[in-house]
């Protein structure tokens, strides 16, 4: 009886060591370092919006944020008679074409009704959705310029 018990104990010890080894190996060998993740990308895309808002629109001679504000307010006087919403759309298209579109990122850049979409519909599950305020020229209201990024 004693010998049988000792054999059992020995067997259990061997099994415990093997299980311990496997568990620890699995737990710690394949962990790939995760980057700063969501915070980092949100910061990058927010800087995208800020840079876009301060970019000059040559056809209007003023910054994008002002043209976008005029579009939201329905005010055509800013762009020498041209439709500010059309100029906003053109500027968005050109910027996105050389940046997010070229990188293959699925996005939806929207300013009220003016939208520029590539593979990221309004109701789709988004990863990030930073936005910045856009003010009407001369005050009196504001809207949002939103960049949604889809996986």
């Amino acid at each position: 009886m004693r010998r049988g018990q000792m054999e059992m104990v020995g067997l259990v010890m061997v099994v415990v060591i093997i299980i311990l080894g496997i568990v620890l190996y699995l737990a710690f060998s394949d962990k790939s370092p995760s980057l700063t993740g969501k915070a980092k990308d949100t910061q990058t895309y927010t800087s995208f919006l800020t840079a876009l808002s301060e970019t000059d629109v040559p056809s209007c001679g003023v910054a994008f944020s002002q043209v976008a504000g005029a579009c939201l307010a329905g005010n055509p006087s800013l762009c020498d008679g041209k439709d500010p919403c059309v100029e906003t759309q053109k500027a968005m298209r050109e910027v996105l074409r050389h940046t997010l579109y070229r990188q293959g990122i699925n996005y939806n850049l929207s300013l009220g009704k003016v939208e520029n979409v590539s593979g990221c519909l309004a109701n789709a599950s988004e990863m990030y959705s930073p936005s910045i305020p856009v003010v009407y020229p001369g005050g009196g209201g504001s809207g949002k310029l939103t960049l949604s990024i889809c996986p």
Partner: peptide, 8 residues
């Protein structure tokens, strides 16, 4: 006139 351009 159009001094600031979008940059990456």
């Amino acid at each position: 006139g159009a001094a600031r351009m979008f940059a990456t």
